[in-house]
Amino acid sequence: LVRYRTISKIPQITLNFVDLKGDPFLASPTSDREIIAPKIKERTHNVTEKVTQVLSLGADVLPEYKLQAPRIHRWTILHYSPFKAVWDWLILLLVIYTAVFTPYSAAFLLKETEEGPPATECGYACQPLAVVDLIVDIMFIVDILINFRTTYVNANEEVVSHPGRIAVHYFKGWFLIDMVAAIPFDLLIFGSGSEELIGLLKTARLLRLVRVARKLDRYSEYGAAVLFLLMCTFALIAHWLACIWYAIGNMEQPHMDSRIGWLHNLGDQIGKPYNSSGLGGPSIKDKYVTALYFTFSSLTSVGFGNVSPNTNSEKIFSICVMLIGSLMYASIFGNVSAIIQRLYSGTARYHTQMLRVREFIRFHQIPNPLRQRLEEYFQHAWSYTNGIDMNAVLKGFPECLQADICLHLNRSLLQHCKPFRGATKGCLRALAMKFKTTHAPPGDTLVHAGDLLTALYFISRGSIEILRGDVVVAILGKNDIFGEPLNLYARPGKSNGDVRALTYCDLHKIHR
Rank of each mutant, 00 (worst) to 15 (best):
F304G: 01
I141D: 03
L188P: 08
A99C: 01
S337R: 06
P163L: 05
F363I: 13
M251C: 01
I183W: 05
R342H: 14
I361F: 01
L263H: 01
Q353T: 10
L110R: 15
Q372V: 15
F140V: 01
W89Y: 03
N312E: 01
A225F: 05
Y170H: 01
A247D: 01
D286P: 01
D143M: 01
M179L: 13
H73I: 05
A107L: 01
L370E: 01
N154I: 10
F397A: 03
D444V: 07
R218C: 08
A235G: 11
G249Y: 01
R342V: 10
V180W: 11
F378K: 04
R362M: 01
E114L: 08
Q365P: 01
M256V: 12
K395N: 05
L129N: 05
I340A: 12
M251H: 04
A238W: 01
A130S: 03
V95Q: 01
S337K: 04
G422N: 15
E375V: 10
I177V: 14
F234Q: 13
H264K: 06
N310E: 03
D404T: 01
L279S: 13
I177R: 01
P309A: 03
F363Q: 10
K395H: 15
T295S: 14
F296I: 13
L409Q: 09
Y344S: 11
L145I: 01
P128C: 15
Y104D: 01
G334R: 07
A106N: 03
Q353K: 04
I324P: 01
A242C: 01
T295N: 01
I166C: 08
F304S: 06
L94F: 04
W262Y: 01
F420K: 01
T437L: 12
I244C: 03
S283I: 01
N335G: 03
S220W: 12
S192H: 14
I96F: 01
V289M: 01
P282G: 01
L236N: 01
S308Y: 04
N335Y: 13
L236E: 01
C417W: 09
R373W: 01
W382T: 07
I260N: 07
G396N: 07
I96R: 01
K172N: 03
A238Y: 01
I405E: 02
R214C: 04
E221D: 09
K285L: 13
L343T: 12
A235D: 01
F296T: 05
T290V: 01
F435K: 02
E376N: 13
A440M: 15
A423W: 01
P184N: 04
V131T: 01
L209M: 10
E114R: 15
F108H: 01
K66H: 05
F397I: 06
L279N: 06
G280H: 01
L266S: 01
T352R: 12
